[in-house]
Lab assay of single mutants.
Amino acid sequence: KKIKIDLKKGPEGLGFTVVTRDSSIHGPGPIFVKNILPKGAAIKDGRLQSGDRILEVNGRDVTGRTQEELVAMLRSTKQGETASLVIAR
């Protein structure tokens, strides 16, 4: 099931960490939400869960991207702006 979640970045950030699983010589594996932090946009919104697979960030497919690339995409969202995620659960 795909779910679109918009998180408005506040002073505590987006409020979640990510982890890559099953990376191989063929490229990075899928990226999942690792933890929801006690402060930040994710816990206020309440929909994002540990174990959700991140498919898109701000309309860009993240398949084949590294964890570092995904984190850079999320960090490029400025405070007060919205990060738009599509996740699979």
Results as ranks from 00 to 15, higher is better:
1 K>M: 02
2 K>W: 02
2 K>H: 03
3 I>K: 03
3 I>P: 00
3 I>Q: 03
3 I>E: 05
4 K>G: 08
4 K>P: 08
4 K>N: 12
4 K>I: 15
4 K>L: 14
5 I>A: 01
5 I>W: 00
5 I>K: 00
5 I>M: 06
5 I>L: 07
6 D>V: 12
6 D>S: 14
6 D>L: 14
6 D>N: 15
7 L>E: 01
7 L>S: 02
8 K>W: 11
8 K>C: 04
8 K>M: 12
8 K>H: 06
8 K>F: 10
9 K>N: 15
9 K>Y: 15
9 K>L: 15
10 G>L: 13
10 G>T: 15
10 G>D: 13
10 G>K: 07
13 G>K: 02
13 G>A: 04
14 L>W: 14
14 L>K: 00
14 L>E: 01
15 G>M: 00
15 G>V: 00
16 F>Y: 03
17 T>G: 10
17 T>Q: 14
17 T>Y: 02
18 V>R: 01
18 V>Q: 02
18 V>A: 07
19 V>H: 15
19 V>T: 13
19 V>K: 12
19 V>N: 15
20 T>M: 13
20 T>S: 08
21 R>C: 15
21 R>F: 09
21 R>V: 13
21 R>E: 09
21 R>P: 15
22 D>K: 04
22 D>I: 09
23 S>Q: 07
23 S>H: 12
23 S>M: 12
24 S>G: 06
24 S>T: 06
24 S>W: 03
25 I>R: 11
25 I>V: 06
25 I>K: 09
25 I>C: 07
26 H>M: 11
26 H>N: 10
27 G>P: 10
28 P>Q: 04
29 G>Y: 07
29 G>W: 10
29 G>D: 12
30 P>L: 08
30 P>I: 08
31 I>A: 14
32 F>S: 08
32 F>L: 12
32 F>W: 07
33 V>A: 03
33 V>C: 05
33 V>D: 01
34 K>M: 08
34 K>T: 13
34 K>F: 03
34 K>C: 04
35 N>Q: 12
35 N>F: 07
35 N>Y: 09
35 N>R: 03
36 I>L: 09
36 I>E: 01
36 I>G: 00
37 L>K: 02
37 L>W: 03
38 P>I: 09
38 P>F: 08
38 P>K: 12
38 P>S: 12
39 K>F: 10
40 G>M: 02
40 G>V: 01
40 G>F: 02
40 G>P: 01
40 G>H: 02
40 G>R: 01
40 G>D: 02
41 A>G: 08
41 A>V: 10
42 A>G: 03
42 A>P: 02
42 A>S: 04
42 A>Q: 01
43 I>C: 05
43 I>A: 05
43 I>Q: 08
44 K>N: 13
44 K>M: 14
45 D>I: 01
45 D>C: 09
45 D>N: 07
46 G>C: 07
46 G>H: 12
47 R>Q: 12
47 R>N: 11
47 R>P: 02
47 R>I: 04
48 L>F: 02
48 L>I: 04
48 L>E: 00
48 L>N: 00
49 Q>R: 07
49 Q>K: 13
49 Q>W: 08
50 S>E: 12
50 S>F: 09
50 S>Q: 10
51 G>A: 07
51 G>C: 08
52 D>H: 01
52 D>F: 00
53 R>Y: 09
53 R>S: 12
53 R>V: 14
54 I>V: 11
54 I>Q: 00
54 I>G: 00
54 I>Y: 00
55 L>E: 12
56 E>D: 09
56 E>Q: 12
56 E>P: 00
56 E>F: 10
56 E>S: 12
56 E>W: 06
57 V>F: 15
57 V>L: 13
57 V>N: 01
57 V>Y: 15
57 V>I: 11
57 V>E: 00
57 V>R: 01
58 N>Q: 14
58 N>F: 05
58 N>T: 03
58 N>W: 02
60 R>A: 10
60 R>L: 07
60 R>Y: 09
60 R>D: 11
60 R>K: 07
61 D>N: 11
61 D>G: 10
61 D>C: 08
61 D>F: 10
61 D>T: 07
62 V>M: 05
62 V>D: 02
62 V>Q: 05
62 V>P: 04
63 T>P: 04
63 T>C: 07
63 T>V: 07
64 G>C: 06
64 G>S: 09
65 R>F: 07
65 R>S: 08
65 R>Q: 11
65 R>P: 05
65 R>W: 05
66 T>K: 07
66 T>P: 06
67 Q>L: 03
67 Q>F: 03
68 E>N: 06
68 E>S: 09
69 E>Y: 06
69 E>F: 08
69 E>I: 08
69 E>D: 12
69 E>H: 04
69 E>K: 12
70 L>G: 05
70 L>W: 03
70 L>T: 04
70 L>P: 02
71 V>R: 11
71 V>T: 15
71 V>H: 14
71 V>F: 05
72 A>R: 10
73 M>I: 04
73 M>R: 05
73 M>C: 07
73 M>E: 03
74 L>M: 12
74 L>Q: 03
74 L>C: 07
74 L>G: 03
75 R>L: 04
75 R>H: 08
75 R>Q: 01
75 R>F: 06
76 S>I: 10
76 S>D: 14
77 T>Q: 07
77 T>M: 13
77 T>W: 12
77 T>V: 13
78 K>E: 13
78 K>G: 11
78 K>C: 10
79 Q>V: 06
80 G>R: 05
80 G>W: 06
80 G>M: 09
81 E>W: 04
81 E>K: 10
81 E>C: 12
82 T>I: 09
82 T>C: 09
82 T>Q: 14
82 T>M: 13
83 A>P: 02
83 A>V: 13
83 A>G: 04
84 S>Y: 06
84 S>K: 14
84 S>D: 13
84 S>G: 10
84 S>E: 14
84 S>L: 05
84 S>R: 08
84 S>H: 14
84 S>N: 07
85 L>A: 01
85 L>V: 13
86 V>W: 07
87 I>F: 04
87 I>V: 09
87 I>P: 15
88 A>E: 14
89 R>I: 00
89 R>N: 03
89 R>K: 06
